[in-house]
Simulated scan of single mutants.
Amino acid sequence: MITENQGQYIRSVRLRQSEVLTFSQYPFSLPAVKELKEVNLHPRVTFFVGENGAGKSTLLEAIAVAVGFNPEGGTINFNFSTRDSHSELHRYLTIVRNHKKPKDGFFLRAESFYNLSTNIDELDKVPFGGSKVIDSFGGKSLHHQSHGEAFFATFMNRFTGHGIYILDEPEAALSPTRQMAMVSRIHDLVKQNSQFIIATHSPIIMAYPDALIFHFSESGIEVVEYERTEHYRVTREFLMNRKKMLDILME
């Protein structure tokens, strides 16, 4: 049974606007950031959706860093740095936490997953205490799998429940079938007292029931229902009227 407060480790995220020197420079110039005061998260699954460049991944990354994760992904114990490309937004965020502390956590980024995989291989060249980092990812080097397989292996093996999981476009390497399997896995982990914050373009993943969906746009951030998301409406229109849509696109 899933109760309302079960698994909620982060209650909300606040931007300390009074400390921002100017809203004319990135990332504070992004409408979603400029209008940000407080985002109240769902105790189980929260989605950030919107067009490319709307600021959803920027805010997601800032939340992850503010919580204590490495900007390039992994658990809070990963501290490698390949390229310092994250913004300063995390320095201006206040993370309002619940009294419970997570036992597990992971920041999964499609953009820097290769760097994470490389760091794991480097760490395992000198295994600590006989165990290897890759053992908790399924035992096979992530570089020796396709991008999709490595993503899925991480999600299925490394996520153990009772945790906070922050995912940036996890569908990037996954087939539709694997995306549906991911929805099932999310539900398993939610039942194990976990909380998810996910930035996605996938109408399959964001279909997870009873989730909170925040839409990022030029107007800022607003809560939307699944059927009102552009991802759902455009995908449905295309599939229901494929020939007509293709004729329009190919005029």
Results as ranks from 00 to 15, higher is better:
15 L>T: 00
16 R>T: 07
16 R>L: 01
17 Q>G: 07
18 S>H: 06
19 E>N: 07
22 T>Y: 12
25 Q>R: 13
26 Y>E: 06
27 P>I: 04
30 L>M: 09
31 P>S: 01
34 K>V: 02
34 K>H: 03
36 L>E: 05
36 L>M: 15
36 L>H: 09
37 K>S: 10
37 K>Y: 09
38 E>G: 07
39 V>P: 11
40 N>C: 10
42 H>D: 15
43 P>W: 09
45 V>H: 05
45 V>A: 05
45 V>R: 03
48 F>M: 09
49 V>G: 08
53 G>W: 01
55 G>F: 01
56 K>G: 03
57 S>L: 10
60 L>Q: 06
60 L>S: 02
61 E>Q: 13
62 A>N: 09
63 I>W: 05
63 I>Q: 06
63 I>D: 03
63 I>S: 01
65 V>I: 04
65 V>D: 09
68 G>C: 04
68 G>H: 14
69 F>K: 06
69 F>I: 05
69 F>G: 07
69 F>Y: 15
70 N>K: 01
70 N>E: 08
73 G>Q: 03
74 G>F: 14
74 G>N: 11
75 T>Q: 08
76 I>W: 10
76 I>N: 07
77 N>L: 03
77 N>K: 11
78 F>V: 00
79 N>S: 02
81 S>N: 10
81 S>M: 15
81 S>V: 08
83 R>A: 01
84 D>N: 06
86 H>K: 05
90 H>I: 02
92 Y>L: 09
92 Y>C: 07
93 L>D: 12
95 I>A: 04
96 V>T: 14
96 V>H: 11
97 R>C: 14
99 H>K: 11
101 K>S: 15
103 K>H: 14
105 G>I: 03
105 G>T: 11
106 F>G: 00
107 F>P: 05
108 L>V: 06
111 E>M: 02
111 E>L: 04
111 E>N: 13
116 L>I: 07
116 L>D: 11
116 L>P: 00
119 N>F: 15
120 I>G: 06
120 I>V: 10
120 I>T: 12
120 I>K: 04
122 E>T: 06
122 E>F: 00
123 L>A: 00
124 D>T: 04
124 D>S: 04
125 K>Q: 15
125 K>L: 10
125 K>D: 14
126 V>Y: 09
127 P>Q: 13
128 F>N: 11
130 G>K: 10
130 G>M: 08
130 G>F: 12
134 I>K: 02
135 D>H: 13
136 S>H: 13
137 F>K: 12
137 F>G: 05
139 G>N: 12
139 G>L: 12
140 K>N: 13
144 H>Q: 15
147 H>R: 14
147 H>G: 11
147 H>E: 15
147 H>I: 08
149 E>H: 05
151 F>P: 10
152 F>N: 10
152 F>A: 10
153 A>C: 07
154 T>K: 12
158 R>M: 03
159 F>V: 00
159 F>R: 04
